[in-house]
């Protein structure tokens, strides 16, 4: 076999393994960090620093009763949680972890990511619909509306970066930041992208599809065992994805001083954003659904458009 293919397979295996180890690890990380910000300890009994809680939680999920409600649409009910994991994992194809450490440097990288995240919305809609439960359906409808709305200006916000680098390929975008991270010229774009990213992953404070205080657990109310686990893992993978994309788009990806290898730079920057996600959860309350939509369409969209126009104008002026 071709060496290049074997190399690529190694990368695929590495990325997959890395992600699937890190995602459950985030359970521990999130609980510890939340505890830290809430003046608690969090899980600290099982294993060193409570790390084995990851194992315990996973085992627990596996051993729970795998219950499919009799009133559910069985096939769709089973398929829904897999969609979210698959689409997020596929998105990682275009993420440049380090020079050469990338599954595939697609020239339409950003479009591909947008496509995949749109497909992810199906997971929520189908899951909520198949559950045949009013709370699930309400959650799913909210989720769909939220994801589609925020996707619009998420795409628009990224266009600034594309304009600056002149490419949809993330690899090229990272390399274009050699002199200056795009956070500086594209600060507004960064903020919009981050907010939209949170909404995309329906993480707190934008966890409106779940909102346990009003919808039990929203679209996954009826899910248990590993089916619920897949939604769970999908959410954490989403966090990693948005964090790594933010890093790639605005924080120079793997770029950094030479005393550390590029992969480590990338991981460190991503880790910082993951922690930021958790900090958000620790401090912000959930907005109302109508507030969320209003915020998206009435504020974020105009700003994203303005950002795009100004960026385009500036580029035209100086070229």
């Amino acid at each position: 076999m071709d060496d290049a293919i074997i190399h690529r397979l190694w990368i695929i295996a590495g990325v997959l393994a890395g992600l699937l180890i890190v995602a459950p690890g985030l359970i521990w990380l999130e609980r510890r960090m939340l505890a830290l910000w809430q003046d608690r300890y969090g899980p600290n009994r099982a294993g060193p620093f409570g790390l084995l809680i990851v194992l315990a939680d996973t085992l627990k999920l596996f051993f729970k009763e795998d219950w499919i409600p009799p009133f559910a649409d069985k096939f769709v009910f089973v398929i829904a949680p897999t969609i979210v994991v698959v689409t997020v994992l596929l998105s990682f194809i275009v993420v440049p972890f380090a020079p050469g450490v990338m599954v595939s440097d697609l020239n339409i990288g950003i479009l591909y990511f947008l496509a995949m995240s749109s497909l992810g919305a199906y997971s929520i809609i189908l899951g909520g619909w198949a559950s045949n439960n009013k709370y699930s359906l309400l959650g799913a409808m909210r989720g769909a509306a939220q994801m589609i709305s925020y996707e619009v200006f998420m795409g628009l916000s990224m266009m600034g970066v594309v304009l600056l680098s002149g490419s949809f390929s993330l690899n090229t975008i990272v390399e274009a930041q050699k002199d200056m991270w795009f956070i500086i010229p594209q600060f507004a774009g960064f903020v919009i992208f981050l907010i939209a990213g949170i909404a995309e992953t329906h993480r707190l404070p934008f966890d409106i599809p779940e909102s346990e205080s009003e919808l039990i657990a929203g679209f996954h109310s009826e899910y248990s065992s590993m089916k619920f686990g897949l939604f769970f893992v999908g959410e954490y993978l989403g966090i990693i994805l948005i964090s790594s994309l933010t890093v790639s788009l605005y924080f120079g990806g793997w770029l950094g001083p030479d005393f550390l290898p590029p992969l480590l730079w990338f991981c460190l920057k991503t880790f910082a954003f993951i922690c930021f996600f958790i900090l958000l959860r620790a401090s912000l309350p959930r907005p109302r659904y109508d507030q969320l939509m209003e915020y998206g369409w009435k504020i974020m969209l105009p700003i994203a458009l303005l950002n795009l126009v100004v960026t385009a104008g500036v580029i035209l002026m100086y070229k």
Partner: peptide, 15 residues
């Protein structure tokens, strides 16, 4: 609020 929450990192734990 993000900042205030962040500062709690350096507070004594109540547990």
């Amino acid at each position: 609020s993000l900042w205030i929450t962040f500062l709690h990192m350096f507070h004594k734990r109540e547990t």
